[in-house]
């Protein structure tokens, strides 16, 4: 058991093997997502099996879904949506949430109060209601879906970042920096951020999981991924009837989600210390 206090300097650049595994799995899904249209064995909408919830076979490697469509093809195409949309949305939510949160902590006063109350209000509007309004007002498209997912999670990211930054903001070195006459952007990005990056990354990881799961919920509100395509969460949802039979149609997309989300979090936990704990 080692801690940052006793670790020799050189070790901080080491990328642990668990982090490597996480990175490799993410890379794998990214490549799948990129190549998806070229490697699917069947068109995603085509019914290739007379039966439904079919088992794994040499013809259908991952069995068939509730309509008898090829699961392997559906999962491969689903990777595009789950990986792409979720990453974009989580970046939007966490980057803007953290930036606002830190700024609010450093600037304080009215800026803090108004921004905090505004985001509290935003968080209090039921997402089903806002989802329906957006679907009715601007219709559905991938950018709308990404912005929607991002906006839903900004208040949470903001609040967590702000609470971390408020703590750090009371430290002596921040006071020193401010009396030195440093501007707000400098204080935020050079003094606060490095000191809270660890928890922020953990927050990023958890939010990524939430977004992956919420994605399927928004598809049902008529936003985003349109048939015949489906993200992984939607695949689990539409095939949940296969659960009693242990159908691969419901098990495999669940495993795909778990593999992606666990990898992202393992990677974050095991980033080289140089990136993760710059304060140490």
């Amino acid at each position: 058991m080692t801690t940052s206090t006793t670790m020799p300097r050189g070790a901080r650049y080491r990328f642990s093997w668990i982090g490597m595994i996480g990175f490799a799995i993410i890379l794998f899904w990214a490549i799948i997502a990129f190549l998806a249209p070229h490697i699917i064995p069947y068109p995603v909408g085509e019914i290739v099996d007379e039966d439904y919830f079919g088992p794994m076979s040499s013809k259908l490697l991952l069995g068939s879904d509730y309509l008898g469509r090829d699961m392997l093809s559906r999962i491969i195409m689903g990777a595009r949506y789950t990986v792409g949309i979720s990453l974009a949305a989580v970046c939007l939510a966490c980057f803007s949430g953290a930036a606002f949160g830190m700024a609010a902590a450093v600037i304080g006063g009215w800026f803090d109060t108004i921004l905090s109350r505004f985001l509290d209000a935003l968080n209090s509007i039921p997402s089903k209601l806002s989802g329906l309004v957006i679907a009715a007002a601007v219709g559905s498209s991938l950018p709308v879906l990404i912005i929607m997912l991002g906006v839903i999670y900004i208040p949470g990211a903001y609040r967590f970042a702000r609470s971390l930054a408020v703590n750090v903001n009371t430290m002596d070195y921040i006071t020193v920096a401010r009396t030195r006459g440093e501007g707000i952007p400098y204080v935020v990005f050079s003094e606060i951020l490095p000191n809270i990056i660890g928890p922020l990354l953990a927050d990023f990881g958890i939010r990524f999981v939430f977004i992956v799961l919420l994605l399927s919920g928004l598809s049902f509100l008529g936003l985003g991924v349109q048939p015949p395509y489906a993200d992984w969460g939607a695949l689990v949802h539409e095939n949940i009837g296969g659960l009693p039979f242990g159908a691969p149609a419901v098990i495999v997309p669940s495993l795909a989600i778990a593999s992606l989300t666990i990898s992202v979090n393992l990677l974050i936990d095991n980033l080289p210390k140089k990136i993760r704990d710059r304060s140490a």
Partner: peptide
């Protein structure tokens, strides 16, 4: 860590449905 993330990666309706089954 792995159990925590593993558990929330499973959609809520699937946990609930599995428990009922």
């Amino acid at each position: 860590t792995i159990l925590t993330i593993g558990v929330i990666s499973v959609p809520e309706f699937m946990i609930a449905t599995s428990a009922v089954l």
